[in-house]
């Protein structure tokens, strides 16, 4: 069971209060009229499906009902951070040391329980929106 920190409620709550909603930061094509079938297909259906660091959208469905993002390792299930809509992740596959996002890993280091981490600093990375 995940213990997830909702960045809006600013509290840790059990997984049951939340719903996962898939990969985060998917930008809808800005110019629908000139978007090709391949681009639409990519936006609608093709996913990173990362084994390792994954940025994903969750909704606090029976809490504040707000959407927010989680950076999570899909192999170890460790939650690295949660952050608000419109913000960028501070933890990425690129900026983590190799050992921490090893995709081959099958077992959680901390057993079954994984605890959501609060971002270390409130000022998150201001990358360009992609």
């Amino acid at each position: 069971m995940f213990h997830i920190h909702c960045p809006y409620c600013d509290e840790y709550r059990e997984e049951e209060e939340f719903h996962p909603r898939g990969q985060a930061h998917l930008a809808r094509p800005a110019t629908p009229d000139t978007t090709t079938d391949d681009e639409w297909g990519g936006y609608l259906f093709f996913r990173d499906n990362e084994r390792g660091i994954h940025h994903e959208l969750w909704v606090h469905s029976v809490g504040c009902r707000k959407f927010f993002n989680i950076t999570r390792n899909t192999a170890t299930y460790e939650i690295h951070e949660t952050y608000k809509m419109g913000e960028r992740p501070s933890v990425t596959a690129e900026n983590l040391p190799d050992s921490q996002h090893q995709s081959g890993v099958q077992a959680a280091t901390s057993g079954w329980q994984t605890v959501g981490a609060r971002p270390e600093s409130a000022s998150l990375n201001q990358e360009e929106q992609v």
Binding site: M1, E15, G22, Q23, R51, H54, T74, A75, T76, Y77
Partner: peptide, 13 residues
């Protein structure tokens, strides 16, 4: 389980 996961186990809920 609704989230992407590669651990061959599932959640208690």
């Amino acid at each position: 389980d609704g989230y992407v996961g590669y651990g061959q186990r599932g959640s208690y809920t």
